[in-house]
Design a protein around this nucleic acid. Sequence first.
DNA 1: CAATTGAGCAACCTCCTGGTTGCATATTAG
DNA 2: CTAATATGCAACCAGGAGGTTGCTCAATTG
Lengths: 112, 112
Amino acid sequence: MSPRLPNPRLKAQVFAALGDETRLQLVVRLSDGRQHSIAQLTADSALTRQAVTKHLLVLKRAKIVQSRRSGRQSLFELNPQPLNELQQYLVQVSQHWDEALNRLRLFVESES
Amino acid sequence: MSPRLPNPRLKAQVFAALGDETRLQLVVRLSDGRQHSIAQLTADSALTRQAVTKHLLVLKRAKIVQSRRSGRQSLFELNPQPLNELQQYLVQVSQHWDEALNRLRLFVESES
DNA sequence: CAATTGAGCAACCTCCTGGTTGCATATTAG
DNA sequence: CTAATATGCAACCAGGAGGTTGCTCAATTG
């Protein structure tokens, strides 16, 4: 009864992308549904523009974020799909744990 | 209308703990609801016992896993609570994005 | 009791991450 | 046209992550 789960490497990549405070805050920031330039996202950060850029690229590699160039600025927006998939993944693991525990409980009871 | 979200640093820590393929597989393994010794968890891994131990400690620091000593072995079991909290967190971010986008859509329509 | 097994601890190594500075380039504003 | 702005790219650096080996010790097993 092992859980039917998607490629752990890909999931781990998305988890890792969210596993940094700065990047997590960027995601929250971008959850306003709008597009933001790198300069905007850097404005209230203690980091340099280049550091923020690197973080955005990590998010982009994990497909959590998309970007397009507009004039001299490049605009980033959130893509919630990977987040939803991750959420589903966590539900599955948690459910599997729940069901397994119930089976164990039944088994113990049938022993006594 | 910024999202009401818990401490991002703590959440990032949990995400980071799951952001490694080996650790994610350990979590899946432990989602069978049973307790496993380090030796058991090492058995089907290409890594050394010491490496697996380190990964387990990372999971423990994030409270995803608990351990107790039993004789000469130390037994690890899953604690699903942080996973559930993370799941809720993702729901919130996703919802916030959704609502924000709806508001933007309404605004655009009211302009035309 | 002797041998085996399970685990902890420490030192060490390599590579990646997260950050910086510096410079070049394209676009927009005055 | 010139100045200012937004970004890209590269080199560099320190520290942490992930892994190993080696050794010791406690608990089981025969």
